[in-house]
Design a protein around this nucleic acid. Structure first.
Lengths: 154, 154
DNA sequence: AGGCTATAGTTCTAAAATAGAACTGTCAAA
DNA sequence: TTTGACAGTTCTATTTTAGAACTATAGCCT
């Protein structure tokens, strides 16, 4: 597989997988959403090798998911902040967290609980249809080829 | 990192990443949701090496995401069907598709369009709060340690 | 001035995972 | 009896990752 052009495939899942489809990247993003921003912070909480962390952060910056922002002038030091594009990954992360809660739990109970500041309650994330608001299930969805697929197919 | 015990970490994201956190697994699941069920089907549509496909299918069966069901007795042949646990991965896949549509698109337009059979309309998946029904955004969520985290830490 | 610490990386080698191709075994149809 | 379909397994070469050590800048302490 040519992983280097996966982000240009006529498939939105492939394109997303090209950017966030590996273990370390997903764990780094978890830390980002938990407000970690600095190299040492990621490294110590994940026990990732410095080499890979450096490489993954560069990639996330290159794809516009993180911004590398200076926070100290002398010596030059940078931190990594989620862009809007990065913040928009939240549903993916939350969907994964929720699936883990539902299907990979153990007798110790949930590792984290999530409170929705707007309503003040502990919640689960639910995926709904943008048009009718009903909860979505795989078997209720029909897939059509869109313009990007038809053009790619010729 | 001890990837072999990632599914026992006191973090639901880690546990999910342990199961579906790699490129091939996510692409295989895409095919599953597009109704592909057989070894040759996965292999030819993904161009994955037979070795890795075999290995990934075994893993998905081991984690209870696919069931290996015989469809021919002589010769013995099997197909791979999503279990309920597997079907429940749908929000993750859809969240990834939606992010790809929103942020990785090109001039050709969307590769696929999704129709919600219940309401008959083309839709986007939206993640909402189970309690108040509002669309969720990262900055509106506050995270608390749950019992699984506190016990692991103590 | 000299040494210690903090931060953010880079460089190196060994081990593990993946790619790519060929091979195996069962059975049906020609 | 040969060919083809299907569902894998086995093999070697290449790529990726792990783990540890090293570099560079600058503040602080003595």
């Amino acid at each position: 597989m040519k992983w280097d052009t996966l982000d240009e495939e006529p498939c939105s899942l492939s394109r997303t997988v090209a950017v966030v489809g590996d273990r370390w990247t997903l764990l780094i993003l978890r830390e980002c959403f938990l407000r970690v921003r600095r190299f040492e912070g990621f490294q110590s909480s994940l026990q990732i090798t410095r080499h890979l962390l450096s490489e993954r952060l560069k990639k996330l910056v290159r794809f516009g998911i993180l911004r590398r922002v200076p926070y100290s002038e002398a010596p030059k030091r940078y931190e990594y902040i989620l862009t809007q594009k990065g913040l928009d990954l939240y549903p993916i992360i939350m969907a994964m967290v929720h699936w883990g809660d539902a299907h990979m739990g153990d007798e110790r109970g949930r590792p984290l609980l999530h409170e929705h500041k707007n309503c003040g309650r502990l919640f689960d994330p639910v995926m709904v249809c943008s048009e009718c608001g009903e909860a979505l299930h795989a078997k209720q969805v029909h897939v059509h080829a869109g313009p990007g697929r038809r053009e790619a197919a010729g």
